[in-house]
Write a protein that binds this DNA or RNA. Structure first.
Lengths: 128, 128
DNA sequence: TTGACTCTACGAAGCGCTTCGTATTAACAT
DNA sequence: ATGTTAATACGAAGCGCTTCGTAGAGTCAA
């Protein structure tokens, strides 16, 4: 009963999470300064978003200092996993294989990338 | 200048597109009857959604008959490609490899699936 | 022609996301 | 104490998505 609903970060939320994953725990100002160059956005807008993300449980907030410090609640990997599974259900009928196909098609992955994927396949077959 | 913006179908729109891909060109009633068992939804709701999808260009409408016939404008594959690319940009920093990893992790794919992916990798390396 | 059905069209409510302006509170220097 | 700076809190507007009720128009049979 602890997990009520699968939370899907919106685009804006994902942009903020990306900053938190890259920088680690950060204040609103730090996130804002990271985000602003990419897309102009007001300081209070970022603040509001991060407040809402706190309510949603996407981030946790340390209020011990005057400038609150925010931390992503889930790791980047866990979030990626959720997003992939979600897309899998919505648009691929649950077929991971077809999603992999689409992900690789057109994208020329480097030789080392391909090798990495091959290794993963090997491991999956080994632990069958 | 023909493609203005990358269109991302919403959940509801994707549900409708899935029906159109499965059944082929369909009327609102046909889509509604396919959708209703899964999740209860009003007829006019589906109608409205499909009207909006027409405006967006997600589907095309044949009005020659009294009951309009709708067809998905993009193939399932093209749409899947777009969605994957979008997720790639938003949450994976563009790394298809990492997305593939997350898609396969935890999902035990069948042996034939794995073989299929291996073959794709082979082809990609061949056409290097 | 009237009635029963079956469509589409229209409009509006409710909610969530995004945006920001304004108010308030805290910290610090003078 | 007072003014400046910097932070959070609050509220509201605008837009898109989702939902549906109601109105209006087409079709067919009696």
């Amino acid at each position: 009963m602890s997990e009520k609903k699968l939370l899907r970060p919106t685009d804006s939320e994902l942009a903020i999470l990306n900053v938190l994953w890259k920088r680690g725990s950060s204040t609103v100002r730090e996130v804002h300064q990271d985000l602003r160059p990419v897309s102009p956005i007001g300081y209070t807008t970022v603040l509001k978003l991060m407040q809402i993300m706190t309510e949603k449980g996407l981030v946790v907030r340390d209020e011990s200092e005057r400038a609150h410090v925010y931390t992503a609640r889930l790791t980047e990997q866990k979030t990626q996993r959720q997003l992939v599974n979600d897309l899998l259900d919505r648009a691929f009928g649950g077929s991971a294989t077809r999603l992999v196909m689409q992900a690789l098609a057109g994208k020329r992955a480097s030789a080392s990338d391909l090798a990495e994927i091959r290794q993963l396949l090997d491991e999956m077959e080994a632990t069958k």
